[in-house]
Structures are given as C-alpha cells and as structure tokens.
Design a protein around this nucleic acid. Structure first.
Lengths: 251, 251
DNA sequence: CCTAAATGTGAGCACCGCTCTTGTTTTAGT
DNA sequence: ACTAAAACAAGAGCGGTGCTCACATTTAGG
C-alpha cells in the first residue's frame, strides 16, 4: 500500500507563502500527484501485468475520485505510454550501467554485458519487459516520445559493433549484402558510421532480435519442459547462446 | 457479419426423426453453435486482437442471450484457450504443409521452408501469432491440451536436425556442451534421438528462438525506421537471417 | 481584487464478465 | 408412453471497467 501522498491537496493553502516562489504550489502538487499515480500504476503492473492496470484501482489507492485522474492523464492509454517510456529508460539505464563497467577494449566482454544485463533486467521486471516487447496493443501507435528511449540499448550495441569494425579496417569477410539487403537497411544507414559494412549491420540487428527472442522465450514459458527451470541451467543455456551470437558476428 | 447459425435452435423439433439417430439433435446443435462461437471469436481476434475479445459481442453477433454462451464455454479464458490451441494447430499445419513440399534430402531447403512459412503464417495471422507468442496472460497456466499442438513446429525442426546429425555420423565439431548445459537440456533429451549431440540440440533451440524473435520484431514494429517496410526489403532481410541461422548450425 | 484557469467531486453512461432464477426443451429410463 | 432428469435459453442483476459531464472549489495572474 502506498502512503497517501495525494491526501490533503490543499494542505499548503493556509501557510503564508511568498507569491513569487520558484514553483507554485499548484505545480508542486501536480508533480507530486503525477508521481504518485505513476508509482501506483507501476506497482499494479509489476504484480498483475499491463492488462490488469485499472485507473479506478489507482484512484482508490490514492484516495481520490475516479474522475480526478483524468486531470493528469487524458486516458488509460496515455498513462500506459508514459509507463512504456519509463520502462525503456529503465532497461536502457540498466544495460548502460552494466556495459560501462567493462574495460573499453574488451569488446566481447561489453557485448556479453549487454546481453546479460538485458536478461537480468527482464527477469526482474517481467511485466515491464512485456510492456515493451510483448503483444502490441491494436490501435496503438508509438508516439514520438518513445522512439528515443527505445533505441538506448540498440545504440549501445551498435557502438560496440562500430568499434569492432573500426578495429579491423575493411578486412575480408565483407561478402553478402545483396542490393535488396542494402536497400532494406537504408533507414538505418544514416545512424551507423560507414566503417560498418551492410552485412555487419544486418548481422548485428539479427543478433539483437535473437537476444530478445531468447529472453521472450524464457519469460514467456516457451522453455518449460525444455530447459531446466533452475537458474544455473537457464544461465548456462543463455551463455551458450551468447557464444553463438559472438560467433555469428565473426568475433 | 456472420450468418446467424444460432437462430431457431429448435428448428428440428417438429420433424419426425427416428429415436436412434447417429447423433442427437442436441449434440448437433451444440456442435453447430460451438463452431459459430469460435468463428465469431476468431473474426474478432483477427480484427482487434485478443484483448478486445468480448463474449457479449459474440452473443450479439449470434443473436443469443449473453448468458447463453456460458453453456458452451465456462469462461472467457476457456474460450481463449481453445482459440490458442487452434492457432497452434493452424501454424503447425501451415508449416508442416510447406515443409512437406521440399524433397526429403534437401535439408537446408526444408529448414528454409520452416522459417519462411512460419513468417508467412505470422504475417497473415498477426493477432493469432501474438495469441501464442505474445505477452503471457498473468494467471494463465497452459492446460495440458495446449502442449501437444504447441510442439508441432518444434518437432518438425528437430526432425530436420536429427536427419542432419544422422547424415554425418559423429563428426568433429562436437565440442561445447558443458555439464551445466547438459543438465539444462535434460528435460528435452528424452524427446531427441541420441545421434543429436547436446550442443546441436542447444544450437537448434537457439535458432528456433531466434526465428521467433525475428518474427516478433517484425510484427511488433521494432523494425520500424530500421528495415524498409516494403515486402522485398523485409523478405531480403529475413533471408539474410535464415542464412545466418544455417551457418550457425554449421551447415 | 477579480476573472479565468486549473483542479476536485459525484452522478451517470455504456460496456464488460459472470451468476442466478425461471421457464422450456430434449434426453433417457422404466 | 410417461416421467424424472438433464440440458438449454432468456432476462435480470451484480460489481467492475474507462470515461464524460455539470458543478463546486481552489489557485494564478492581470
């Protein structure tokens, strides 16, 4: 149960305050209540998943009228959008933190760190993970605000790939990359330095989706009765997959 | 709009019928109405996804009382379970059909067919795909009936792997497979012939999850602004990935 | 100070999954 | 053929949902 930060919204009214304060009490309350709503929502999602998120339940927990929440979020979907953005950021921050601990020159180590921290975050935030990489909601179009946070871990992965490609200046193994594939990758091209050949980009992206396929399979229960549930087994299998991805990248 | 197969449930009552008919009119009606419910449900899911499935909407479309549907499915979840099983079967049948068209000795061709038909089915049945491989519903435990259909495409993939392993009797490249990995794979071991080494099994499973990761990424919009939307581009990228998986399998 | 904007409230709408009662129809046993 | 039991259909209703609206109150700024 949350402490009711929403209660007594006018608690500051009788305290004499200077008119020109840094932030008005209204703005303060707004920020506080918005945060409380998000906290309650996150709690609900962590326990029962996104589909069970109820705005009425949030207002109940906060002790406000059910209609009051619409002063802060115009709809349930907008609330969810904000939560999605936060989840992207949470995952991005976790992965960035883990990767930053590895010596810069240890490229495979950084790659491993990205994979492991992604899985770890997903295991610890299952519902948030599926909020991001689960079933897309039908009418939902990802707003502009989501795309930047969504690319944080992808950007990190690309960075490692770039440094790898830069290390071996245009070595062989640059076959592949049919014209069709080149065109397919064109939207991504501007974001990636020229040192990275097309095939390398495609391989990186492929490994990227394989990573999330592996995590989704584990979290989605697709490995039930296939890989032992014990963490040692799950982890061993995951490490085996990482080795495979590193090999696929030609490292 | 569906033709109202539910209407006039007593239409047979006044026709004199022999008592010992193969199936009673009640059983006939039950079968007919159950089929109509499922058809309407599938239609709804195809249009708006599983989350938008409403039993009341089904009964409206069929012209029955909203409470009547509970004579056929005890709850919305049971209805969904049936639809999940059907989706597994639909996917399994599509993949089996496509794979069966390839000459038996063309192992990579059969593998390619499995991958391509999986993607094709997913593109044509997006909501059904996410019904299977999307966000797991919180309290939902897959009933026993689902596991058999769920393994159809996996079984197919294993078959190809087995034939490949059988072809090259215990060649080199059987490194890997730490004790931890061996234990991790133990639940799967009884289902796979001994000719397939542990590492091969793990690799196959890894490729399997990579396949679904790739499909999920495409359907989930994760490739938006990354790979051109045109089918030629999407297909070219997918084929590139297939080549990578074949390489990963050491073929 | 006073108007206008922002915020809180409660009633209410249309929908949802599901239950229960009541009355009808079909089945099965004698 | 008759009857008890089982299956079924219909409607009312319960508690829940997201959301809107009219109305009171509180705050902000000219």
């Amino acid at each position: 149960m949350l402490t009711n930060v929403y209660a007594a919204p006018n608690s500051c009214q009788d305290v004499g305050m200077a008119k020109e304060q840094a932030v008005s009490i209204r703005a303060m309350n707004r920020e506080r209540i918005t945060a409380a709503i998000l906290e309650s929502a996150r709690e609900q999602i962590a326990q029962n998943g996104a589909s069970a998120l109820s705005v009425r339940a949030i207002t109940r927990e906060l002790g406000m009228a059910s209609s009051a929440i619409y002063r802060y979020f115009p709809s349930r979907d907008d609330l969810l959008t904000k939560l999605i953005i936060d989840s992207y950021d949470s995952l991005g921050a976790a992965v960035e933190e883990a990767e930053s601990r590895i010596p810069r020159e240890d490229l495979t180590g950084r790659f491993r760190a990205i994979c492991r921290s992604t899985r770890r975050w997903a295991l610890q935030n299952q519902h948030e993970y599926f909020l991001i990489y689960g079933t897309p909601v039908p009418g939902y179009q990802a707003p502009q605000d989501t795309i930047a946070p969504a690319t944080r871990v992808a950007t990190l992965m690309i960075t490692v790939l770039v440094q790898r490609s830069a290390g071996q200046n245009a070595s062989g193994r640059t076959f592949g990359a049919t014209p069709d594939l080149r065109r397919a990758l064109s939207p991504m091209r501007p974001s990636v330095p020229d040192v990275v050949p097309d095939a390398e980009m495609a391989r990186g992206l492929s490994v990227f989706s394989a990573l999330f396929g592996a995590v989704s399979f584990e979290l989605g229960g697709q490995l039930h009765n296939v890989i032992r549930e014990a963490e040692t087994s799950r982890s061993a299998y995951f490490e085996f997959q990482i080795d495979g991805w590193i090999a696929a990248l030609g490292w």
